[in-house]
Amino acid sequence: MNHLLKADFYRLFRSKFYYILVGVAFLLAVLTFALYMAIVRFASAEAQLQIGAMTAEDFQKFSFDGTVGYCAAIAAAIFICGDYAGGGIRNKVLTGCGRKDIYLSKLVAVTFVSVCVYLATQLVVFVCGSIGFGWEGASAYDVASRFAAGLFLAAASGAVFTAISMLSEKLSLSLIVSIVLLFTLSLVMSLLTVAQVYFGSKAFDWFVRVFGWLTPMGQVTLLMGGSHDYWIMSAFSCAWILLSVFVFSRGFQRRDLK
């Protein structure tokens, strides 16, 4: 397993996509920060009084915009399907690297990229947010818990998209499945949130919350909306990671490789 990790990280650190994804996530976060700064600066005093001043905590909530999920999907597709296409995975199986170890090594590498992307966005939140907005009135516990929930969410996204890429083999198929999944879940979550306003029933509220906890894209919406269920969400993220390790990996262990 250690050998495989060394080999995968050797390849990862020599891959342009890794630096591009982290760089793009960082630049998007900076751009978002600049836009929020502009909105705050040019907003009318009346509106500012009504809504309240924007804080770094608000900026942290808005940073959960799904970028990490898309980056994890792209990273998994390029890193894993690229290895399939080059014959690397086939060669590892041929030379006695266990299939489970191969899967786990890929999962760790993709999760690492996903976490790096997340940390790049959070770097902007904590550095620029502190300078530009300040943490006035923010609870340190909430900020830390939200950060941790985001971290688990990034890891879960890495684990889920690793499974999709390991099972789909082809870059195009993996990308299509991952992006369609992300779009669909976002769409469903948005529709449920709108429906929640109109239905207004307690039971439906719970349904939306549970659906939100269950899926990484649902969690993004909940975190953005200011939900405080950080540890429930983290637990569901861990469940996705465990599902990938113990269940989806079996699919890879059983499949015939071309």
């Binding site: 080059g86 041929l94 030379t95 690297c97």
Partner: peptide
């Protein structure tokens, strides 16, 4: 059984080559 494959070297169908390396 996969462990004994560590004593193997193989090219099946196409050689495993990373194009950007």
């Amino acid at each position: 059984e996969y462990l004994v494959r560590r004593r193997l070297g193989a090219i099946i169908e196409a050689p495993a080559v990373y194009p950007s390396f």
